[in-house]
């Protein structure tokens, strides 16, 4: 009975078709299937010829770009770390250099100082020697003057006392006195 109804629908398509389910109208199946296959082939062409290669390429490219950028960032970071290390190293070197220069300067100054003080010492020494010499001279001069004065004084004393003074004896006596 149902097949009859469908057949009737198929035969008189249009006016009475509204009663039945259009989905079961077999007369339209070949038409639908034909156009479905056409549409599917068209979509398949779009997908395989355009969509998949294009989007696949874009996605791959994007992934590549991101990877590259990350790598570049990593590299830059490494470079920065390297630069910091180099800077620190340079700083340390400079510090060591400065310490060396300071030490050298100190040593120089010390050496100069030692030389200068040695020179000064030597001069002082020399001056001391000269001064001592002069003092000794003066002392010797003074001693001589003292003995002369004593001789003269003794001679005068002897003369005043009325004696005839033997110059030689007086000198010997004064000398002995002075020694004693």
């Amino acid at each position: 009975m149902s097949t009859e109804a469908v057949d009737a629908t198929a035969a008189a398509h249009g006016a009475t078709a509204t009663v039945k389910m259009p989905q079961l109208d077999i007369s339209t199946f070949d038409n639908q299937i034909f156009w479905l296959l056409v549409a599917l082939v068209a979509i398949y062409m779009i997908v395989t010829r355009v969509a998949v290669p294009r989007i696949g390429a874009v996605l791959a490219e994007r992934r590549g770009t991101i990877t590259n950028d990350l790598a570049a960032a990593e590299e830059l970071k490494l470079k920065a770390v390297e630069a910091e290390t180099a800077y620190n190293k340079a700083l340390a070197t400079a510090r060591a250099e400065a310490a060396k220069i300071v030490a050298a300067a100190k040593a120089d100054i010390e050496a100069d100082l030692a030389k200068a003080s040695a020179k000064a010492d030597a001069q002082i020494e020399a001056k001391t020697v000269v001064s001592e010499q002069r003092i000794a001279d003066i002392r010797a001069g003074a001693m001589e003057s003292v003995s002369e004065v004593a001789n003269d004084t003794a001679k005068e004393l002897v003369a005043v006392l009325g004696g005839k003074a033997d110059a030689k004896a007086i000198t010997a006596a004064v000398t002995a006195r002075m020694k004693g």
């Binding site: 009975m1 149902s2 109804a5 469908v6 009663v19 039945k20 389910m21 079961l24």
Partner: peptide
């Protein structure tokens, strides 16, 4: 249900 209503 649909078959009963529209196809039978």
């Amino acid at each position: 249900a649909l078959l009963l209503m529209f196809a039978v």
